[in-house]
Design a protein around this nucleic acid. Structure first.
Lengths: 199, 199
DNA sequence: GTCTATATAACGATAGAC
DNA sequence: GTCTATCGTTATATAGAC
């Protein structure tokens, strides 16, 4: 029925183009991906992309906003839960690796291009999300120290950066569907973080 | 003496331009830094840069080669030393943070742009150095497990990636001359890695 | 929804004057 | 060693035909 395309079909085409763009942004970087790259991968010409999106920037904007709404919803659930401090830290690490597994492209774009994108108009929410993420982890760490399950002799800001970097940078080598599952990686990371490498 | 410029003076000007370029590559990324950006920062016009260098790529090539020769020389010294396995791991972490402190731009370029640069002709040594770095850390870890100072129940490849990522990604927030010295950061990272965060 | 065709700007790099 | 001037290419984005 070419005359009466459903909204669902339009949405599907739009989402398909966003998925293609996200994979290219993730693997080559936002600046290093041209609209011609995206159009080629989609089997159309570059000009045709502008029927669906206003600009290249609006594409990455939509990709990142959708992903971050889901991720921070999960962090909020952990904070609101009634698990003990050590379990909450473990949950936060696991949720992060699940995000790397299920939204690999989006995490890679956020990890590798957020610094540049944050300088553009309309991307101020990236800095807000960054601050929000810091608050989540810092609160988990402070609760852990207060409860006596985390050692108190370390610089807590440095510990935050250690965990944040360690978790998110894994997107650059972790491959969904590979030999190690996200849960397996998360288990070992939690072990190293909380118990250390020492025998 | 304008007629008889010494080699030292030419070298100084060349090194000054490389330093300016390295800072821009590090803060904005290689692809996102134009030759006009470099020339502007140096107070000359873009065409004048080509009196000193063949291309933008040859500039970053010279920056990375010089840095890596020094860094891997230090790793080799650690491997050849007679310290115990745990001390060698500590030394490797400290040497890495000293590199972040004293060669901040170079480390940032290697951390952020090596994946792209490695695809270019003439940059095959980046992959070689990457493999060499892996061998250094894997050898240190295997010796640690064999000596019984490191726990043996973890995936050693995953531990390698954990340490590598954790150490080098710190270049994105560490600032030379800031409130935390490289040695202080290295001390706390070694503590977290070997002893863990658990109380 | 895609194509043809093109506007406009920025890019890396070059040639020759000074 | 730098400047003037510009070439050739590629980038994002647009206008209108189909």
């Amino acid at each position: 029925m070419p005359e009466t395309q459903s909204p669902a079909q339009s949405l599907t085409r739009r989402e398909e183009l966003l998925r293609i763009a996200a994979e290219l942004f993730a693997s080559k970087g936002f600046r290093n991906t041209t609209v011609r790259d995206i159009a080629d991968a989609a089997g159309i010409l570059s000009g045709s992309l502008y029927h669906h999106f206003d600009s290249k920037e609006s594409m990455v904007d939509e990709i990142l906003r959708t992903f971050q709404e889901e991720l921070f919803g999960q962090y909020d659930e952990i904070l609101a839960g009634d698990a003990d401090p050590r379990a909450k830290l473990e949950q936060a690490v696991r949720v992060s690796f699940e995000a790397i597994d299920r939204h690999h492209s989006e995490v890679a774009i956020f990890q590798n291009d957020a610094a540049y994108l944050g300088t553009l108009d309309g991307f101020g929410y990236l800095a807000e999300r960054h601050a929000q993420s810091r608050e989540v982890w810092m609160r988990l760490l402070r609760e852990g120290v207060a409860a006596g399950v985390l050692r108190a002799d370390l610089d807590i800001d440095l510990v935050y950066r250690f965990i944040r970097d360690t978790v998110w940078v894994a997107v650059n080598w972790y491959r969904p569907g590979g030999s190690l599952s996200a849960a397996q990686v998360a288990d070992q990371y939690v072990t190293i973080l909380l118990d250390g490498l020492g025998a």
